[in-house]
Each structure stands twice: as C-alpha cells, then as structure tokens.
C-alpha cells in the first residue's frame, strides 16, 4: 500500500536536549494512525516537522511524496491540519472563515462543516473567540473536512474537550475518514478516545518509537500478567530484563508485568528461569492500560 507519510531516521534536538534519534515510521494510504507518547516525547515536534514548521537536525520526512520542509502549495491543499488547541483565526466568525478558506481550496465542500454546525448551539455570525473549546474544536474539524483533504493531521484533538465533544469529534472523524478513504495521523493525550478511532498505534518514549502495531494487537495480544512473586530474586531480575517483558514490578508478594508474548512463549521463559508460576492470571487490557504497560507509569 502506498505510503502517505514516510519518515526516515529523523533526529531532532532542542539545543542540547535530544528529542529523538533515528525515528522512522510510515503511514499508509487510508489508515488512521495514532501517535501516543507521554508529555515531552516529541509528538508535537513530529507534527511540526511533518508540516514543515521545523527543520529536523537530520533525516527526512516525506508527505504525499514531497519533502516536508518544502511542501508545494498544491500538496498543502491535500493536507488538513488541526493545530494543538483547535487554533483558528479568533477574530473571524464562522461565515467569514468559510468564505476565507473556500477561496483557497479548490475542492471545498461546505457540507461537513454545516453538518457539524447543526449539532452545535452556535450562530454563523459568532466569532471564534467567543466560543467554548468544544464548539471551537467542531468548527475547526468541520473546516478541515470541508477542505476535502487526502490526509488529515490532528495534533492533540482531545485537548480541553469534555467527554461529549470528544465522542462527537471521534465518531464524526471516524465516519468521515472511513467513508471517504482518508488517511489520518492523530495525536492525543486521552488514550481511550484512540481506541474508538485508530487502526494502528505508534507508541513513543523519550528518544524513540517503542512499537508500531495494529490496534487489534494491543487489544488482543497485549496482556497483563499477574502471579505470586517467586522467591528467586535472580530469576525475577532475569525475566525483567528479557526482551518482550514490559515494566515488571514486584509489590509485596505479587509480581506484575505486561507483554505481547504468547502464553507458550511466557511458559518457556518461566521454565528457562525456573519460575514456578503460582496463581497466574493473564488478561487483555484497554489501550490506555497497554500504553501504561509499555511506557511505564512514570
């Protein structure tokens, strides 16, 4: 499948501080990819590089086949961008915004904007600056959808939204993207929203991407394992340092960890390290728990 976004060996520093090194990932056509990471791991930095607002120290980033630091106006017309905080021209009202944007986008279609507006208690003559965060988010989303872009890049869309607006945003976006085969690249702090939206997740930690997998893997293969903590401390330590075992913790007499490994692989590890798995329980987790399991609590 064609890559709409292609980042290769991206490295970026703010002064002396390394944000990430050799970051590589692809986003294929028609997919909805969520970029998850703790605060300060470089999600917005990645969005800025993707849109040409930041020059990476090294590496390349292509969007719709063009280098992101030199995107042509024609290609920009195919990219819908939602800036963190649903930023829009605050001094304009909805009617003015519609008139303004429609002059730039050749495929402008007001239908999605009007549909979203019909769900809100807003007047078309109301200025953006007088709207609530939720209303502003829907207007911003409607404006992006009306541009009829091929790819939508949404930075922290859930910021400041109450559950109702978040649900409206997610449902409307999901329906729009799947029905029109749009590519979506999205970041958010509210991970349970991602569960209802994305096809695959990219999880970032400080300086790197930990994993990029389909959502189904997180929901069905990633499991939380709990068992009675073995007395053999060395075995616990060896298991903790095994690749595929995430954030193993021992609390009182219980041991807990997360893993993508299948049960037979886990059993093989217990056997290898001479661990007697007593009271073992393994269960699938929500995406949020999977995120915590992979990145750790702190």
């Amino acid at each position: 499948m064609e890559n709409i976004i292609e980042c290769r060996n991206l490295t970026h520093y703010y002064g002396e501080r390394c944000i990430y090194e050799n970051l590589s990932f692809n986003v294929t056509q028609g997919s909805i990819v969520g970029l998850l990471g703790k605060n300060g791991t470089g999600k917005t930095t990645t969005i800025n590089i993707l849109n040409g607002f930041l020059k990476p120290k090294s590496g390349s980033c292509k969007i719709l086949g063009e280098e992101s630091n030199n995107i042509s106006p024609e290609t920009r017309s195919k990219i819908g961008l939602l800036i963190e905080g649903h930023v829009q021209y605050n001094y304009m009202n909805i009617a003015e915004l519609e008139k303004f944007y429609s002059g730039f986008f050749p495929k402008w279609d007001s239908k999605p904007l009007h549909e979203l507006l019909s769900k809100l208690q807003v007047n078309r003559k109301q200025k953006i600056s007088t709207m609530s965060c939720g209303q502003r988010s829907q207007v911003a989303l409607g404006l992006i959808m009306s541009q009829d872009p091929e790819v939508l890049i949404l930075d922290d869309f859930s910021m400041g939204l109450d559950p109702g607006y978040r649900r409206l945003f997610v449902e409307y976006l999901k329906d729009y993207a799947t029905s029109r085969n749009k590519t979506v690249f999205v970041t958010s702090h509210i991970i349970q929203d991602m569960e209802k939206l994305v096809d695959s997740c990219l999880i970032m930690d400080y300086g790197r991407i930990i994993t990029h997998r389909p959502l189904e893997d997180f929901m069905t293969k990633y499991k939380k394992h709990q068992l009675k903590a073995p007395d053999n401390k060395e075995a616990v330590s060896a298991l903790k340092n095994t690749e595929g075992i995430d954030h193993l913790d021992v609390f009182k007499d219980k041991m807990e960890y997360h893993s993508f490994l299948a049960q037979d692989e886990i059993s093989a590890l217990y056997q290898k390290y001479n661990i007697n798995a007593t009271d073992e329980k393994s269960q699938t987790v929500s995406l949020e728990d999977a995120f915590i399991g992979i990145t750790g609590k702190y």
Binding site: N51, G52, F53, P73, E74, R76, S77, I79, L81, I83, G85, V87, Q88, Y89, N90, Y91, F104, F105
Partner: peptide
C-alpha cells in the same frame, strides 16, 4: 499579532499558497 497568538501563523503558512 493575531497571527502570532497561539501560533495562528501556522494556519496561514499551511494554506495552499506560496
């Protein structure tokens, strides 16, 4: 100033125009 408030300038620079 309105362009710099909340970095709205990014919206302007993202418009399909040189």
């Amino acid at each position: 100033l309105p362009e710099m408030k909340n970095k709205t300038l990014k919206l302007t620079l993202h418009l399909p125009y040189d």
